[in-house]
Design a protein around this nucleic acid. Structure first.
Length: 606
DNA sequence: CCAATGTTGGGACG
DNA sequence: CGTCCCAACATTGG
């Protein structure tokens, strides 16, 4: 079939980080081509399906968002939908170019490491096929690459740098939003018979390792047919992924409508928007939460970050005119969005190595427990599927108990159980548990914690997750390691009654507030009276126990805090970073254990 | 060289 | 509630 002339554009619009119709510069660019045929596409990429850590809650959120996008297309044009194909973009796109006679490929820019490499390849494939590619930024306030270039080509590592760089892009403001397509503005795709793909599209998928195997209680049917099990290019179901709906317990719903509904309801409360200061929002609030919970929508692009920015800025401007109080960057809402851009800038500058310690120039090396294997040259054993080294059985036990929410510290356990159940915890709660796992308790590598968050968070954004773990572990962005979160005092400050604990650790629901943060201190008689014994490790292996139990604390926090503090001091004295020679060649251990003591950094004599 | 600053610590004291 | 201290990090601006 001859390729139609380019005056008759056949446009493939590739959705990735933008499951929305509103404020999408890329979608606008695609529709501006005045397509004769328009095909909104999603490629169900095995890399995401098997190599990224995604728990049931995030799968659900993604599917809800896709489903709604597909319905929105259908509403604007009954012949339209989101066309979901089950194959890797690199292999399927060239075939689709040919099969559908594509003249233009349009998508939103993505600066994540994997996405960058993939898109580079797609660009070449498109060129070979004679397909014109249009890429537009829409995922961030500022193009991360531009932010970096305005920061002297260096990773954006502080708010001050971001603000200065942003000042040189748009006077510190992102571009205004673009209009949403309305009925009649979405052209048709081909007739269904012309869309149909034959069986040679089905490619073998290398399913191992499947990082999400543990969640698949049902059969994995994701790559049975390229057009999906009903051959209709439909949005996958949880069942297709092998996940039971009852395992996806998050109360937070996906989709563009939900995102815009939440935003609108937040914006209506001008006092809340105007006076918002993140450090003054409570990590112990629930129903309603103290923050907007729009982060998962920013992740999936069901909400445009620029719309969020400008809707807030318009309120702030109004309040300034009315001489009402307005909180400032970085604690206000625009400041929160700028932090997101800061992490995207850091990731864009560092590239692939940003997600790890190994090879990463901006991250400090600390002699954590359970380090990633790439830091431990040659310690790998044949039958060990763990990607980290077990240097301490005790530390691995602490890590597992942390992950499962049975550390014996109710504040920590409540947060970790909220994370698992709902896929979301407040930012300060994340601080608490991250500090506890790393520099303020377990001294376990932040990379282990980041993996657990990657799996469980519905708002998991690689740049932000990695950046925040570095921040909390004092390996980058932040260095005041002597500021340590107490698993007892910090929660108590926000929630002296312990209502948050009562909700997420129901065993302790009847404990007096005097003991709810430290239940092990409650007299046995009281424990009996309140219906829960504090005993064991929470693993359920002490099966003789009658009635409810809650584990004893897994260590003496004050002792652990001191050990961590001393170790951090030493690690700072050693002063190595992830891209240093000693880290790359695996010899860094000598600087910590054997050999000469690290030179104390010079301090002026008093 | 020094001082100030940095989104979000904890604890004693007034 | 605010203030100061604890012991002490890196960066920035003078």
């Amino acid at each position: 079939m001859p390729k139609p002339p380019s005056s008759n554009p056949i446009v493939l619009y590739w959705h990735r980080t933008d499951l929305r119709l509103h404020d999408s510069p890329a979608l606008k660019a695609a529709l501006s081509l005045n397509p004769s045929i328009f095909i909104p596409l999603w490629t169900w990429d095995p890399h995401y399906v098997y190599r990224s850590r995604v728990g049931p809650n995030r799968w659900r959120f993604l599917l809800e968002s896709q489903d709604e996008l597909s319905k929105s297309y259908k509403r604007l044009n009954p012949k339209q939908q989101l066309w979901v194909v089950r194959e890797a973009p690199i292999t399927i796109l060239p075939k689709l170019f040919k099969a559908w006679g594509i003249t233009h490929l349009v998508f939103e820019k993505d600066t994540d490491a994997y996405a960058r490499a993939r898109d580079e390849e797609v660009l070449q494939l498109a060129e070979k096929a004679g397909v014109e590619v249009i890429v537009r930024m829409g995922r961030n306030l500022f193009d991360p690459d531009e932010l970096v270039s305005k920061n002297g080509g260096k990773a954006t590592m502080s708010m001050a740098q971001v603000e200065k760089a942003a000042q040189n892009i748009g006077n510190g403001c992102p571009e205004r939003i673009v209009e949403t397509p309305v009925e009649g503005e979405i052209p048709d795709a081909w007739e269904f018979e012309r869309m149909r793909l034959d069986s040679d599209f089905k490619v073998g998928v290398d399913e191992k390792p499947d990082l999400n195997e543990g969640f698949r209680t049902g059969k994995d049917k994701q790559y049975v047919s390229v057009m999906g099990p009903k051959n209709d290019f439909g949005v996958p179901t949880l069942e297709e992924i092998g996940i039971k709906i009852e395992d996806a317990t998050t109360p937070h719903r996906g989709g563009e409508n939900e995102a815009l509904r939440i935003l609108a309801s937040c914006i209506k409360d001008e006092e809340y928007i105007g006076r918002f200061e993140k450090p003054n929002t409570s990590p112990a609030d629930f129903e309603p939460q103290s923050t907007t919970i729009l982060s998962p929508h920013l992740h999936f692009g069901t909400l445009s970050v620029r719309k969020f920015w400008w809707d807030v800025q318009d309120i702030l401007e109004k309040r300034r005119k009315e001489k009402k109080s307005v909180s400032t960057i970085p604690t206000n809402l625009p400041g929160q969005l700028l932090f997101r851009d800061m992490y995207f800038g850091a990731q864009a500058a560092v590239g692939d190595a940003f997600a790890t310690t190994y090879g990463n120039p901006v991250v400090r090396l600390v002699d954590w427990h359970l380090q990633s294997k790439n830091l431990e040259n040659g310690s790998e054993t044949e039958d060990d599927t763990r990607n980290y080294t077990v240097d301490s059985e005790e530390a691995e036990e602490w890590f597992i108990r942390w992950r499962e929410g049975r550390t014996g510290f109710p504040w920590i356990d409540a947060l970790m159980r909220q994370l698992r159940r709902e896929g979301w915890i407040h930012h300060l709660g994340r601080h608490s548990v991250a500090c506890f796992l790393t520099r303020g308790g377990c001294y376990v590598s932040w990379e282990r914690g980041a993996e657990v968050f990657e799996e469980l968070l519905i708002d998991h954004e690689t740049a932000c997750n990695i950046g925040n773990w570095m921040w909390l572990s004092c390996t980058a962005f932040f260095a005041q390691f002597y500021r340590c979160y107490s698993p007892i005092a910090f929660g108590k400050k926000w929630d002296p009654e312990g209502n948050f604990i009562r909700r997420y650790v129901p065993e302790l629901a009847d404990f007096d507030k005097k003991y709810i943060y430290e239940p092990w201190k409650a007299p046995i008689a009281d424990q009996k009276k309140w219906g829960c014994r504090v005993t064991g490790d929470g693993s359920g292996s002490s099966e003789k126990e009658e009635g409810k139990t809650y584990p004893k604390p897994m260590f003496d926090f004050d002792k652990r805090r001191q050990i961590c503090l001393d170790s951090m001091k030493n690690a700072y004295d050693v002063g190595l970073h992830g891209a240093d020679k000693e880290v790359m060649d695996g010899s860094w251990g000598e600087k910590f254990h054997g050999g000469e003591k690290p030179k104390k950094r010079q301090k002026t004599e008093k």
